[in-house]
Amino acid sequence: MGMIAPAIPKSWYLPSKPHKFCPGCGHGIVLKALGETIDELGIQDQVVFGCDIGCSLLSWNFFACDSTQTHHGRTTPVMVGIKRSRPELITIGYMGDGGGYSIGSQHLLNSAVRNEKVTLILVNNTNYGMTGGQMAPTTLPGQKTETSPFGRDVDLTGYPTRGPEFIAELTPDSAYVARATVSKYKQLRRFLRNALRNQMEGNGFSFVEVLSTCPTNWRTNAQQTWHFLEEEMEQYFPIGEIKTPFGKGDK
């Protein structure tokens, strides 16, 4: 029996493959899950995909979907502008933890409050990857980064941002808020599907944070990388659907 080639989502843009993310980076997993979800829902022609600046920008031509690049932290308002103008389009904003929780936090917070009918996917890898591994709002206590070389001191810089938790507090029941992880692929797929479904049904704001890996800046090998994701991050940031209009929610 020959090798079975891994299935490539139909909504991927092949000329941009292989992609440019670092080996071991979780972005590829998130974007594969997103591609499969777009295929499954049959929405490739309605999607407008917008990416932030930071590692997420490398996804700008990842999909065979209409896509746009924005600025550091400004993907949310661009997606809101598109959705408010053309409600029939399905807008997917793709950003990192720095873009979403720090430089663009006012946009995230206020679009959640307004229950904007957009889907935002935020990849949390506990650091600013593209700029060289600085401390992010999500850096764990004690975690070493380029700007917290002796470990994050919570007395000086506070505790990691728990984004889905605060967004759940800000949104009405029609919103969808979840935290997934690249270590649980099927669950990630399900959460992304729900987040897109929620927009397609016109319910409200849809937000998925995805815990992801950054071996380049964490300076970890494969085993250490996975260990940090599952044993450190997933312990600090609980996985599950925090708010969903679709039944009880997956904890």
Partner: peptide, 26 residues
């Protein structure tokens, strides 16, 4: 016609960027 009061001027400017990308006179 549509209107949105945004959270700040950054957002007002970027929502206009999104709106015109989608083909609307904003």
């Amino acid at each position: 016609k549509g209107f949105l009061q945004t959270e700040d001027e950054l957002s007002a400017g970027f929502t206009v960027c999104g709106a015109v990308q989608s083909g609307k006179k904003a």
